[in-house]
């Protein structure tokens, strides 16, 4: 681990497949250490971003570095220091877990004896010590996920990329897997990137999140700070015309939107906002039913950022 070098650094990183822009001008800098959640709906560009970072596809434009190495020219060196756990099953039939993990260790360049010893170690670590000589096709979905984690760990990588690590796991297995991820992340020299659509999992293990949509970076930062920023809102439930009230708010420079049956007013940290809201409601003779702070979670953050982005995109297109 080279201190001071970001784990991932990209500048205007873009990838086009024909006319499809899979990743659009992605600029991020992720320091080494910690667990980063990579979020986004299907087609957000997460997988392409991973492939770009692994040096498996050449960027159309822009630059990128992983652990200080150029993704255009140093793909092999990057992959030497990165462990990747894919989302889908990728197993060879008729092979036991030890042989499978050892084989992948040898392909990474580990000597046979080292790979064998290490395969036993990582399989024990992921909780498959007792089942390591069983054929992988007889494993449950959760056990297969553990084998995939073991193969990603065999060469002790500095950067670990986990694509949907808890998919298909039962609640107990999910918690075990997340505990393992947290345990790995305790090591200072390790940086983990976790792609997941299970936001509760991301919330449980990640300290930083990167949210992507339609190939673009929507937001990035400390999970705690981003969630807190969403608390800068007020939820109103009123008896009367909510749309009329939102129009009035916007005329007064207050940002608001209708979500389900409630009005969400942003910028509540400004002391004048609350008095302005009350004044407008009194003028319009609208009865207030509920006034309170939202309970912000990663899910709220994710949904609001994605829907805000899509709305902005729609407005831009219609304009």
């Amino acid at each position: 681990m080279v201190k001071g070098v970001p784990a991932i650094e990209t500048f205007s990183l873009s990838k086009n497949y024909g006319f499809v822009k899979a990743v659009k001008e992605l600029t991020v800098s992720i320091p080494q250490g910690g667990t980063i959640g990579l979020l986004g709906p299907n087609g957000a560009g997460k997988s392409t971003t991973i492939r770009l970072l692994l040096g498996l596809v050449i960027p159309s434009f822009g630059e990128g570095k992983v652990l200080g190495m150029d993704i255009r020219t140093e793909g092999l060196k990057i992959r030497d220091r990165v462990g990747y756990m894919p989302e889908h099953d990728c197993f060879v039939p008729d092979i036991d877990a030890v042989k499978y993990v050892m084989h992948l260790g040898r392909i990474t360049g580990m000597l046979k004896a080292d790979a064998l010893r290490r395969a036993h170690e990582v399989l024990y670590y992921v909780g498959l010590g007792e089942s390591r000589y069983r054929k992988i096709e007889t494993f449950s979905l959760g056990m297969k996920q553990r084998v995939k984690l073991a193969q990603a760990l065999i060469h002790d990588p500095e950067l670990l990329i986990l694509d949907e690590p808890t998919t298909g796991m039962d609640p107990d297995g999910r918690i075990d897997m997340l505990e393992l991820i947290k345990d790995i992340a305790k090591h200072e020299s390790k940086t983990l990137i976790m792609c997941s659509h299970i936001l509760a999992d991301v919330e449980r293990v990640c300290d930083t999140v990167v949210i992507m949509n339609r190939g673009k970076l929507i937001t990035m930062g400390s999970l705690k700070e981003l969630v807190e920023s969403k608390k800068d809102a007020i939820i109103l439930r009123v008896k009367g015309d909510s749309n009329l009230l939102i129009d009035k708010f916007e005329r007064e420079g207050i940002s608001a939107e209708l979500r389900d049956d409630a009005i969400v007013v942003f910028g509540s940290n400004d002391p004048s906002t609350k008095s302005k809201i009350m004044k407008i409601m009194a003028e319009e003779k609208i009865q207030l039913r509920y006034f309170g702070k939202p309970t912000a979670s990663l899910e709220d953050l994710f949904l609001s950022t994605i829907s805000y982005e899509e709305e902005a995109e729609r407005r831009k297109t219609s304009a």
Partner: peptide, 8 residues
């Protein structure tokens, strides 16, 4: 994805 995510 297993082979090519490695230095091969």
């Amino acid at each position: 994805s297993m082979y090519f995510s490695r230095p091969l």
